[in-house]
């Protein structure tokens, strides 16, 4: 069944698309999700260690959204609902990957990529915040995103990521400091130490 085919779908609200999905329109849910793809991609990218992880987490999140769509409260904003599901899927994925006894995909705290200092030196200080975030080591970026952008408490971030609270705090500390340098708010890291 297809109720919202063609250009007509532009005019309908998210809630109407959800209702159409419940009424048996195969395309309605995909149409609803597609409206938010760019936003959800942005969220997944900054909350994941790699584009591949972001795509995988996003797929898990959207399938999970489909499973719970019937219980979604129509009075809540669809985008906020999807946003939360995606952030949690990304964090859960990081925790699961971390729990696996495989070759680490990223370096542990303290062992930052060798090229990072050079990278910081090369990056122009007037980068916008998004670009500066991308220059951070993955673990620091995800900690800063989870706490400062998504507003999770330290405790919740630690629980989701499967690391101690102190680790989240110190990752945030390093991440914020590097961001301040990259954004030109502070001088080069070596100047004060």
């Amino acid at each position: 069944m297809r109720i919202f085919g063609g250009i007509a779908k532009i005019a309908v609200s998210d809630a109407e698309l959800l209702a159409a999905h419940a009424a048996g329109d195969d395309q309605a849910f995909a149409t609803l999700l597609r409206r938010h793809y760019d936003h959800l991609w942005k969220v997944a990218r900054r909350t994941s260690y790699s584009p591949e992880d972001a795509a995988d987490a996003l797929q898990e999140a959207l399938l999970s959204a489909h499973r719970t769509a019937s219980s979604f409260r129509a009075d809540a904003a669809v985008r906020s609902w999807l946003h939360t599901i995606v952030v949690n899927a990304c964090l859960d994925r990081i925790r699961r990957n971390r729990a696996r006894p495989t070759v680490p995909l990223y370096l542990e705290d303290g062992d930052e990529p060798r090229t990072e200092r050079n990278h910081i030196a090369e990056v122009e200080t007037a980068l916008d915040v998004e670009a500066a975030l991308e220059a951070l080591p993955d673990d620091q970026r995800v900690a800063v995103v989870t706490v400062d952008i998504e507003g999770y408490s330290i405790r919740e971030a630690a629980r989701r990521l499967g690391v101690p609270e102190g680790t989240v705090k110190s990752r945030c500390a390093r991440g914020r400091y590097k961001l301040a340098v990259l954004l030109g708010d502070l001088r080069d890291p070596g100047n004060r130490t």
Binding site: Y37, R45, V129, V144
Partner: peptide
Amino acid sequence: RLRGLADPDAPGEPMP
């Protein structure tokens, strides 16, 4: 500045 990114309308790279 990070809190500013929480704005859902903040620009970002489109989904590939």
